[in-house]
Design a protein around this nucleic acid. Structure first.
Ligand SMILES: [Mn+2]
Ligand SMILES: [Mn+2]
Ligand SMILES: [Zn+2]
Ligand SMILES: [Zn+2]
Lengths: 134, 134
DNA sequence: ACGTGATCGAGAACACTTCTCAAGTAACAC
DNA sequence: GTGTTACTTGAGAAGTGTTCTCGATCACGT
């Protein structure tokens, strides 16, 4: 059975306090900066658990780092992510879901899963980038 | 300027000889097993170059490893990949392309890129798995 | 053939993640 | 509350994939 420790709660709280996707290391730094002595390994373990139980979503950044987020829903969905600030928009698209299912079935594939993420620059970051490019 | 070395040719040849997506390390092993003394760093460099120039496609496996493949076309497309044997099917879907573009634009995002991959078990691997589960 | 700078490769260095194991502690029974 | 016990923690070691360093090598224009 799974115990309730302040460490797990701290990780869940830190995730909730973050709008976008964050890495385990970023979360660990954030916790440390508030004075928490939580260990890095524990943050990794807690995040893996949250992802397993579906309480957190996870994805890989284009650089290969695992990022986590406490999403507003447990339902299957995808994300539009600002590659600069991490701002995340949850997106749903039945068309993409059925397309993914169909393309797998039509090719004889089973146990199909799909990775669908959109990365870009959010409006704010776009404006900032344009201003500093001057 | 870019030089032509037997190392680059060996990497390109090994990629071409492979149907599915392969990792840099797998390619390095494959080359070594044929007697080639090519260095691992060189394989990494050659693959990065091929990916830069568009001569190879790359994606991240669910485990976070970078995989490469010499695709049949340079045009933008996606992949249906067997997570067991690596068998790859190239797929195109204008609907997904426009959807990705739209969802980014509607949310004010610029410079949008998307990651769309479908992983599953190919027909052969499905049959093998079913047989050995006995 | 020569000169020069791009390329190579072995190993060190890196970044992220997981493992090890002794110490700590939540949960449960009494 | 006390004791028991198994789960959890955390510091550091280890693992894994990738990139860097830098002296040796070699492609290529002359
Ligand atoms: Mn989906
Ligand atoms: Mn596309
Ligand atoms: Zn942003
Ligand atoms: Zn297969």
């Amino acid at each position: 059975m799974k115990r309730n420790t302040w460490q797990r709660e701290a990780v869940r709280g830190a995730l909730d306090a973050n709008d976008g996707f964050v890495s385990a290391q970023a979360l660990h730094s954030a916790l440390h900066s508030t004075g928490s002595p939580i260990g890095l390994a524990t943050v990794y373990r807690a995040l893996a658990d949250l992802a397993d139980t579906g309480d957190a979503d996870s994805l890989q950044s284009p650089e290969g780092e695992s990022l986590y987020r406490a999403c507003s829903t447990n339902d299957h969905h995808h994300h539009l992510i600002c590659r600069n600030c991490g701002l995340t928009v949850e997106i749903e698209a039945d068309a993409v879901e059925t397309w993914a299912k169909d393309v797998a079935a039509k090719n004889g594939f089973t146990a199909a899963a799909h990775v669908v993420d959109v990365f870009g620059l959010c409006a704010d970051c776009t404006a900032t980038a344009a201003a500093s490019a001057k």
